[in-house]
Design a protein around this nucleic acid. Structure first.
Lengths: 335, 335
DNA sequence: CTGAAAGCGCTAACAA
DNA sequence: TTGTTAGCGCTTTCAG
């Protein structure tokens, strides 16, 4: 059997309460006692049982996080959440969505863990079911917009992101700028809107071209092929594309590279997310960076505020993205 | 306050014990009672508190999993672990290793959750510290070999994997086959050995060439460049490379594509893992597939066996990989 | 088939 | 500064 508080107390020759205080770093024990307790705990290899601790204290100090284990950008967000949570003394309880484990299952498992709040990364549940959940406990939706009261939303200003992308390409001299779209993915609708608005503002309404894409490399590769297919040559195609996300942009780039689109034929590419993918030297993707530290900090703060009954009156935090210029954008080739 | 067992009991007009039985699907309650209890629970939105449950029953029915959130292959393994665990009635407690949260922290957090066993994915801890951990609780190391008693190891036969890769390339007619290495990554040493042995067996000792690589796309890109750099032309280079893993192979392919290595200059590439990356149509990577369903099933089975005091007498499960031929390997070009 | 009572390991009052 | 006591919500005997 693993050692308990009582074992440590016996060994240190003190009462359980003292041990409890010492283990939690609370004041109220003499230095000498503290030393003895710590020593005994170390010798026994004692770790406090968080279950019992939480049961008794009523609060779990646990933040539930639902994420898609196959999404590289979720990995970046989870990393940020760990960092943000550490400063607050809360632990993260991760629950992954996989091909065989849907979002409902992921959420249900966290419900049993008595998390004080839930942070959902780009959830696919309907607004109604998110609302139902939010009625029962504090919920923060991260990286998706959802019109439901009683829950917080933390997301990037997607429309602004596409404005940044289009502005950058226009400044380089492009006018035929296509969008490879994210379909029904979180944020895709806003990015589409932002693209259209930016193009119109630059008087490029005639050049608006939206190609169906998706979230994955595969979707990007397909979109790239369909973009080139059926065009008679470089003069008949866009000189730049802005893509739903980095992952998808990687697929686009891959096809462009394989087809040897250089010089007169080259096409500029802008991604979205600034995931670790984009930063790789050999990819070196110009992209719209989401502010992960800020997003994750806000998500944690808002989750805790809600858990403590003092929710932020402004229910949505819309965070500005930032343009990161790397190697995949250049002035349009002279044709 | 959230509803408790007692609330449900009151509402259904029965005792707590009955509710407990019904919630756990144990026999001992009449159909009528069962119905009433379930109804009351539904109306109250009752979810049993796993903490209290575990505290009382002594067993957590929890399997701790430590994984690298940035590793695509770990995502595949976690997916498999969820599936394997579900059939046993155990839950997974995930703890991620991130850039700012090291393995020790990830393990420590699970220790507090009273998991019945720990499954570590490609852990980087020293054998000594793994041994220390295993002395305190059941441990299964997945996807890495480690010579420590008192813990189970489930891994792919890495040497056989490289034999399969080399055999395949030799069968296609290659003889100048290089290895892009994984350095000190889990499995790398065995793969190196397998490569050397296979090359020698084919009488290709003179062509053995090991290029330093790594686990990431970046490492692969760098290795590919260094492979080509300083060679005077196609005649002075290998006609095929077998790469530490798919992720690294992706970087290699990317550089090859950018440089337009086709026709007479083309170089065959073999990956390792058969991660979702390799399966993408536009990558279409020939690779050595690890048997994820089998590995994860064994990991869960062995973790539970150990937790229940009946460890498998054979401490290491070495699972055979499989060659998956896709589009990145072909006979060597005529030069 | 059902209920009453004890206690898992811990924390939070309180008393000493 | 220290020890004592009473539960947190549940499962698990053991009686009825």
């Amino acid at each position: 059997m693993r050692p308990t508080l009582a074992d440590v107390a016996t060994r240190a020759g003190v009462s359980k309460s003292l041990v409890s205080l010492v283990m939690r770093d609370e004041p109220g024990a003499s230095p000498e006692t503290r030393r003895r307790v710590l020593e005994a705990a170390g010798e026994l290899g004692y770790h406090p049982d968080s279950r019992a601790r939480l049961l008794r204290s009523g609060r779990s100090r646990l933040l539930g996080v639902v994420f898609g284990i196959q999404h590289p950008f979720h990995a970046d967000l989870v990393t940020g959440l760990y960092t943000a949570a550490r400063e607050t003394g809360y632990e993260l309880a991760l629950s992954a969505v996989t091909a065989e484990r849907d979002e409902a299952a992921a959420i249900a498992s966290l419900l049993q863990d008595r998390c004080e709040a839930l942070i959902l990364l780009g959830p696919q549940s309907t607004a109604a079911s998110l609302g139902g959940l939010a009625a029962r406990m504090p919920v923060v939706v991260l990286a998706r917009s959802v019109r439901v009261t009683d829950l917080d939303v933390v997301r990037t200003d997607d429309a602004e992101g596409l404005r940044l992308a289009v502005d950058h390409l226009v400044a380089l001299g492009h006018s035929r700028i296509a969008l490879i779209d994210g379909g029904r993915a979180p944020g895709a609708a806003d990015r589409r809107r932002g693209y259209g608005a930016a193009m119109r503002r630059h008087g490029l309404t005639a050049h608006i071209e939206i190609v169906p894409g998706g979230l994955t490399e595969e979707d990007g590769a397909e979109a790239a092929r369909s973009l080139l297919l059926g065009t008679s040559g470089p003069d008949d195609r866009p000189t730049a594309v802005t893509v739903f996300n980095d992952r998808c942009a990687t697929g686009v780039l891959d096809v462009f590279n394989r087809l040897g689109l250089t010089g007169r034929e080259s096409i500029s590419v802008v991604g979205f997310d600034d995931s670790s993918l984009a930063r790789l030297a050999h990819v070196n993707l110009t992209t719209i960076a989401q502010n992960v530290p800020e997003m994750t900090r806000q998500a944690v703060d808002r989750a805790l505020a809600r858990a403590h009954g003092t929710p932020d009156p402004v229910r949505a935090a819309v965070i500005s993205p930032r343009l990161v210029i790397r190697g995949t954008t250049a002035p349009p080739p002279q044709r």
